[in-house]
Every structure is written in C-alpha cells, then in structure tokens.
C-alpha cells in the first residue's frame, strides 16, 4: 500500500527534478522570462492609465490593470493545463528520449502526467509573478478568498487538462496539426474574457464564449479576487466547471487509452 503510493510520487519527482536541472542549464532564458513578465505588466499598467476616470458598467473591469493581470496569470495557467500533456509527449518524441522513458516500468499515462509536472511548477511561479509585480509596483490590491480562487484555478485547470489529454491522444496518433490546441489556444484569448469583458462580444460570439471552460474559470476568479464575492455568489460558474469535468474526464481517459493501444499496435509510439 505504502509502496503503491510512494512509487508514483517518486517517479513524478524524478521528472520534476530532471526538468528543473534542464531548466537551470538555460539560466539566461529563465531570467529573460521573468523580465518579460515585468515588461508585460508595466505595459498594461500604462494602457490602463488611458481609462482612468472613464468609468465602466462592468464591475470586474473597474480596475482594468487588475482584470488584465489576473486574466494573463490565469490564462497562462489554463494554457499549461491544456497544452503541457501533449507537449510532454511531443517533446520527448522529438528529443528521442521517449523510448528510453517508456522502457522503464512506468505506464504511459504516468509518463504523460509526470512529464508535465514541471510545467505546472513553472507556470505557478510565472503566474504568481504577474500578481506579485502588479501588487509591488502598481498598487494592485486583491480581496476575497484566495482559497476559493484557488479552487476555481484547480478546477478549470483540471477541465483543461482533460482537453489536454484529448490533445495528447491526437498527438500520439496524428503527431501534428492538433485542432484542440488551435481552437482552445486562440479561442480562449479571444472569447474567454482575458483582455475585455465577454459581454462586449455579440450574441453569437457570446454563445461561443459560454462553451469554453476558461470563461467560467476567469469569471469566477475575477469575481472572487477583484469583487470579493463569496461561494454562494459564484456557485453558477463553479457548478458549470464541475459538469465539464464530470463529462470530459472519463471521455478523455477512454480516448487516451485507445490512442496508446493504437500507437503500440502501429509501432508509432516514438515517432513524431
């Protein structure tokens, strides 16, 4: 029992340590990324100055800088949840290391999840930097329950990870040209309210926005952190995300198992 619990954790840790070691072998890139985040937050600060005193009917957008940096931090997280699983497979395939990893007594799903673990560690750090720089340099204050915001964050990331599993299944069989990535990557930035309120979209596009899980995640997090709303007030986006998860989780795992079987049958598991 103890071994069954410890062994997968030890393997996940192995991947995190490996990716940390690889990341610090590129030190310059690490520091440039931090600098980029600072530049982005600063740029949005100056854009937000254009709207000072203009007022808005959208309560979450009264402090546009807070809305943008929350949106960017969360979008970053969501995209990692969605893309890292497929990227993990693809990058191991391209490096040529997938075969040696798959030769160890570890299941393919564990490899996929463990390979993306470092991405989550890194994105947590980067997303926190958006909020931290906003607070430190530009006087952005957040209120409400951070725990509730975290629940939204985890839940939305899990829903997106299900789509990520579908994307990884696609990468395993078709190798490239993943439609999930294209639709969700570009769609979320446009339709989920990262840079502007979704209410500004026309009714047709607003319907698209309501089909995307990040819309509910972002809405919930902003309402909690910026407006200070409680559990009762944000129950609608929370329940919607739970429904997404209940449908997508079993479906994506089923598709993934089929993709792995197919790749092993075709002998294409390590091809890219």
């Amino acid at each position: 029992m103890f071994k069954a619990f410890i062994l997968p954790l030890r393997r996940v840790r192995a991947f995190v340590v490996r990716d940390f070691q690889l990341a610090i072998s590129y030190r310059l890139e690490f520091f440039l990324r931090i600098l980029t985040i600072l530049f982005v937050v600063t740029t949005f600060y100056f854009i937000s100055q254009i709207f000072i005193g203009s007022g808005t009917r959208f309560s979450e957008w009264r402090d546009p800088l807070a809305a943008w940096i929350t949106g960017l931090a969360v979008l970053n997280y969501f995209m990692t949840g969605f893309s890292s699983l497929a990227n993990a497979i693809r990058s191991e395939q391209m490096q040529g290391t997938l075969e040696s990893v798959l030769l160890s007594p570890i299941s393919v799903p564990t490899v996929v999840v463990a390979s993306s673990a470092w991405d989550f560690v890194l994105v947590t750090f980067h997303s926190s930097l958006y909020l931290f720089f906003g607070w430190l340099f530009f006087d952005v204050h957040f209120r409400g329950s951070f725990l509730l915001a975290l629940i939204f964050l985890v839940l939305t990331t899990l829903v997106l990870a299900c789509l990520g599993i579908l994307s990884a299944s696609f990468a395993m069989v078709f190798k490239r040209g993943d439609p999930f990535g294209i639709l969700l990557g570009t769609g979320s930035a446009l339709f989920s309210g990262v840079f502007f309120p979704t209410q500004l979209l026309g009714s047709g596009f607003h319907a698209v926005s309501r089909m995307l899980p990040p819309t509910y995640g972002l809405d919930g997090i902003r309402r909690v952190l910026i407006e200070g709303q409680g559990l009762a007030e944000v129950s609608e986006p929370l329940v919607t995300l739970l429904i997404f998860l209940a449908v997508l989780l079993p479906f994506s795992l089923w598709v993934f198992a089929r993709a792995v079987r197919r790749a092993k049958r075709e002998g294409s598991l390590i091809q890219y």
């Binding site: 062994l7 393997r11 490996r18 490096q95 007594p105």
Partner: peptide, 26 residues
C-alpha cells in the same frame, strides 16, 4: 547505440539518477 535516448544537457550522473528513479530505486 542510439545516442539521442539521453538528455544531452544533463550530466552522466543526472541522467543515470533520473532513470534509476524511474525504475523505482530510492
């Protein structure tokens, strides 16, 4: 004899340690 099956930017020890952990070694 496939050279690409290792992580080129990691050291000999780091590479072996990673694979040892995958095999479940403490």
């Amino acid at each position: 004899a496939e050279e690409r099956s290792f992580y080129w930017r990691l050291t000999v020890e780091q590479n072996l340690m990673f694979f040892a952990r995958l095999y479940g070694l403490s």
